[in-house]
């Protein structure tokens, strides 16, 4: 999980062009949108592309993103959850 969070932080910094920020400065529990990091709807779309490209997770309705993208932690939780069924089938 910690590895995934670190990975996500790095990917978000690059994809969202969070200039000058380091993974350490990004708190995984901080809200990404609104009062927190101040991301907006286009950033949400960028995160959707990131999840599809790097984690093969497709979000078809941007509205679903609201809960999932609350913070880096919630995104990591969602990725972990989506990965589970795949893991189950291989056991």
């Amino acid at each position: 999980m910690d590895q995934l969070i670190l990975e996500l932080k790095k990917e978000l910094i690059e994809r969202l062009n969070l200039e000058g920020m380091t993974p350490e400065e990004l708190d995984e529990n901080m809200p990404l949108f609104g009062e927190g990091l101040g991301l907006d709807s286009i950033d949400a779309l960028e995160i959707i592309v990131l999840l599809d490209k790097n984690y093969q997770i497709k979000i078809t309705d941007p509205k679903d993103g609201k809960k999932i993208f609350y913070s880096i932690k919630t995104i990591a939780d969602y990725i972990t959850e989506q990965r589970k069924p795949v893991a189950n089938t291989t056991i």
Binding site: R15, I42, V49, K53
Partner: peptide
């Protein structure tokens, strides 16, 4: 596939 929305906008 996997395009960057910001480039388009």
């Amino acid at each position: 596939q996997h395009l960057t929305p910001t480039h388009f906008t």
